[in-house]
């Protein structure tokens, strides 16, 4: 078989072979890591480091609003971030106020609170240390309202308890009442809208709103321009989640020497291996595709000559 006919065959390859290669390059590392528990070391990027330092600098009892603006479709990328954020806040003994602007996210809040707060800190009391305010429709309309009056948009919690009966909401007036806001978002409404409608109006005030965000890989480039002024920190994609998770685990280990970190708190780091092999396959496919392209172009030029 001549090299030309091999290149033509390769160019016309059935795309199901590519699908199979992708399935193997992601599936095998998942399988191997599931058995061995191996993970790669992380060297945090400036945005992840800033995220960690912003949360780490919060005092004990700090009031932190966390908005879960995503749904199960992007949970693979964002749930490890949300888990690491809530775990870090719980570790810092912050008061955690959860809410969402995405209708399908309320069970994700409950799941995260169960994993990181209820299971790890059974002594914590709902309504005093953490609360789930649930979903509110209106997208950026909600942000505009909570900027001046939080309870107008969230008059009850997720369970229907009036805000007036929830002790940790007693001194919450608006978004400025929070020491920091964390947004984990997959799209619209998300971190960008939080910057535009909640952070920007307070930038010149005495107490500018501190916002950190965890976002998907595709939306990260749109948010980089806001770092570090409007966004104090940002976790970009599963890589950002892995870096932050690594830092949180390190902090937990430093404060509790000998503690064993459960596998559920290493989810993001474990997902870096499938990502590595997936990326390597992509690089390989691009190289092969371009080799074919240049070989065919050369053959066409030779034929013309």
């Amino acid at each position: 078989m001549s090299s030309q006919s091999f290149i033509e065959k390769l160019d016309a390859i059935d795309r199901r072979w590519i699908f199979l290669l992708m399935a193997l390059s992601v599936g095998i590392p998942i399988f191997v890591i599931g058995i061995t528990g191996t993970r790669f070391p992380e060297s945090p990027t400036p945005t992840s480091l800033a995220t960690f330092e912003t949360i780490e600098a919060l005092p004990e009892g700090a009031r932190v609003l966390m908005s879960f603006d995503y749904e199960p479709a992007s949970a693979g990328e964002l749930q490890p971030m949300a888990t690491a954020f809530v775990r870090h806040l719980a570790h810092k003994k912050a008061k955690i106020y959860c809410q969402t602007l995405w209708a399908a996210a309320t069970p994700l809040i409950e799941q995260t609170l169960r994993t990181c707060v209820i299971a790890q800190h059974p002594e914590w009391i709902y309504g005093e240390h953490f609360v789930n305010m649930g979903y509110q429709s209106g997208n950026e309309g909600v942000m505009k309202v909570i900027l001046t009056d939080y309870k107008q948009s969230f008059p009850n919690d997720y369970r229907g308890t009036p805000a007036a009966e929830i002790p940790m909401l007693a001194d919450i007036v608006n978004t400025s009442s929070f020491d920091a806001i964390i947004v984990v978002s997959a799209g619209y409404p998300g971190s960008k809208e939080w910057v535009q409608y909640v952070v920007s109006p307070t930038l010149t005030s005495e107490k500018p709103t501190k916002l950190v965000a965890g976002v998907t890989g595709v939306s990260a480039p749109q948010l980089v321009p806001y770092f570090p002024t409007q966004l104090k920190g940002m976790l970009a994609a599963i890589k950002g989640a892995a870096e932050y998770e690594f830092l949180v685990n390190q902090a937990v280990e430093a404060r509790n020497p000998g503690v064993k970190i459960p596998a559920q708190f290493m989810d993001a780091q474990r997902r870096m291996a499938p990502q590595l092999f997936g990326h390597l396959l992509m690089v390989g496919l691009i190289l092969v595709g371009n080799t074919i392209f240049f070989a065919r172009r050369r053959a066409a030029r030779l034929a013309l000559a």
Binding site: F19, M22, G278, I286
Partner: peptide, 27 residues
Amino acid sequence: MSPITATMFSLLAFYVASAAFRAFRAK
């Protein structure tokens, strides 16, 4: 709901890989 939506999102990896092979060329 969770597995269905996650599956739809995951399919992107396969189509991106196929597109990388066929369309991502140094023209």
